[in-house]
Design a protein around this nucleic acid. Sequence first.
DNA 1: TGCGTTCCGTTGCAAACGCAACTAATTTCT
DNA 2: AGAAATTAGTTGCGTTTGCAACGGAACGCA
Lengths: 151, 151
Amino acid sequence: MKNWQLLDNSTMTLGFLTNRVGRLMSIHLKAKLDKEDFDMPGHCIGILADLWEKDGIIQQDLAISVVKDKATIARALELMEKQNIIVRIKDEKDKRNKKIFLTHKGRQLQHQVLSHGDSMMGEIDAMVSKEEMQTCLAVLSKVYYNLKDKL
Amino acid sequence: MKNWQLLDNSTMTLGFLTNRVGRLMSIHLKAKLDKEDFDMPGHCIGILADLWEKDGIIQQDLAISVVKDKATIARALELMEKQNIIVRIKDEKDKRNKKIFLTHKGRQLQHQVLSHGDSMMGEIDAMVSKEEMQTCLAVLSKVYYNLKDKL
DNA sequence: TGCGTTCCGTTGCAAACGCAACTAATTTCT
DNA sequence: AGAAATTAGTTGCGTTTGCAACGGAACGCA
């Protein structure tokens, strides 16, 4: 339980914890979605998270934001386009770019995914206060934006 | 920057953030280790983190702790044994189990990895107070142990 | 204008992963 | 004690991933 405290290096601890918690939350979310018919591979959800905020983003920016290789993103988007979740439109201003837009179906998935997040939330904030969670998210955000810029 | 706040569901945000921060920290750590000669694949470091605390653990418990499939763990350990980082010793009390022990070389790697964590730490706690980091780690620990039990 | 550089997206390939099926060892139940 | 159920570890297979190499498009500077 507090074995983590034995590691005096909190950055190292943060690294291991975020990796494990990230995998755990993905597993739990996927399990909830599998109970319904959710016709999309789980590894695409991270991409959707970005599109829900900024529609029209290009693949390269998506790769940086999601922290995955641009090839991985390209293949995931190819899959999502086949399933009519997104469309890829060539930018006529700069023909190197492809802008990504959600379809109606893609926007509908947001409600479905977020509702499952709510149910997981219920289990979690029984043990963590709102202020603590807020602080945790703030710290993670700072680390996220800082390390992302240093790539 | 505060686009994350737009998502009113903080659990969902926590899920995406932990995944991304986890990947970012792995990438940065790996980059630092690559500059030296670190003769071990990066995906094994998460396993080492556990062994530094509890030597003699069996593979199955390692899989639960690291949040990876037991087959994945088995293959990683096979690799680590070939590189003389760990040894796998059959438990004579319960012959189904194999206990994992660090070799001298395995324990040496700890210092090397932790020192790089320190340097990453320097960059991070310039922007996050000790109390905030402590709160963040406490929240992640609670989520970790809670979700792990529900698998 | 032209050449070199940089940037975005795609493809090939090998590494890492999870799932399912299997073997062997132990525990549980009758 | 013996059969059934459970548990740990291994192996096969398809999926997901990152890295490197490539091609087309845009930019910079002479």
